[in-house]
Computed example of a mutant assay.
Amino acid sequence: MRKPRVRRPNKYAGWQIFRDHDGDWRCYHRKTREKIDCRRFEPYTLAFDMELHRINELRNEKEAKPGTLGMLIKKYRESVRFRAELAPRTRADYQKCFDYLQAIDDTPLDRFRPPFIAKIRDKALEKRKFRFANYVRSVLSVIFDWGIEYGFTKDNPAAKVRPARRPKALPDANRPWTDAERETVLAALPPHMLLPVALMMFYALDPQDALELPRMAITQAGLDTRRNKTGQPIYLPLFEPVAEAIARAPKHDALTLCANSRGQPWTYNGFSTNWSRLKGKLEAEGLIQPGLTLKGLRHTVATILAEMGKDHGTIALVLGHATEAMAKHYSRRANMTTRTTSAVADFEAELNKRKTKVVKSGV
């Protein structure tokens, strides 16, 4: 029997979004006629969706009860920590957790003890699987920590709850690309996609950072920018693969270094759609293995640097990590490979010695 189709809420419902006769975007709320500044928030981008969500929330939001989770989330979302210190992508990810937790908004904060947090984690694991369950736990820990700092909470019960265990059958997320996969993808990319991927592949930029990179961030001297997620500065010299990609990129007038086939700045969703199509085609032809992600290119750079013997501090500088711990996490496969390669080489030498002894003894 065919399952009934589930209708998902339209996040643009109630809004009129169009281009005027000059080709400029216009957006206003049908009932209130409230406008959105489309020069600042280009329609259908992540920043636009976040602004639209913010306005919708202000319009529909009920007054949160004092001393409840809903109050804590509301105060946190109004804080400078959330509005100014987090990247748009991170705010969007946090909002998904807040939306999930909306059903328990009225729960008093004093009910939040480690066993209760563990039940929330387990419920999310059952409904939305491993990664989302752990993200909900992490976001709860963030807002309770913030609550301690500003006097809304007394402790952080989420910090005492372990993350859900990773399923053994789950493949590695954002695995490093092989050398063959990198060359195959580079050869298959259309001209307008080559430069963004080159910035991710050779400078280890986050996809969003690569797409939003302003022209002035790259000169003959190299790359001078900051990572959006951590705010860490990134200074890297210009070298041949990136310089070649810049030279081959189609000319355009966009303020960003990279532009789509229409000469406009890429949106994250637009680039992801084009990448998914190309990846699916290459997978179907057997030219690449499943599991390639754009985020995996950061792991690729870290792995290669680790295999070259670079220390974690240097890798953290290249990747724009705030701590060496993340650099160690990103390069863990290289560390394992180096150690196992050495161990197997020693094992082979030992087997050869034993074989020689057997031949000499005539046994």
Rank of each mutant, 00 (worst) to 15 (best):
A306G: 01
K31W: 00
T293C: 04
M71S: 12
R277H: 15
H21K: 12
I73T: 06
W266C: 05
P9C: 00
V301L: 03
D179F: 09
R5N: 11
K65Q: 15
K281H: 03
N56S: 15
R5P: 01
K279Y: 04
V359L: 15
R81M: 05
A188E: 13
F112A: 06
S272C: 13
I73W: 05
A345T: 12
R165E: 14
A243P: 09
P171C: 10
E350H: 02
M71D: 14
E183Q: 06
D105M: 07
F132L: 09
K119D: 13
V80E: 12
L213G: 06
T293Q: 04
G296I: 00
E126H: 15
R354Y: 00
R39K: 11
G309M: 02
V139A: 05
D99C: 05
N134M: 00
Y28R: 11
A210F: 03
I218M: 15
A349N: 14
L140W: 09
R5W: 12
A133L: 07
A302C: 02
A343C: 00
M193K: 00
W25R: 10
A188H: 14
F271Y: 12
E307M: 02
S261N: 10
I117V: 13
S331H: 05
D206W: 03
R39H: 06
R33H: 04
C38T: 15
K35L: 11
E61D: 11
P190F: 01
F152E: 15
V242N: 10
L205Y: 02
K129Y: 03
K168P: 06
M200K: 06
I246S: 07
A327R: 02
L58D: 15
I143D: 02
H252M: 13
H321W: 01
R81W: 05
L109K: 14
P241H: 13
E181T: 03
N335T: 05
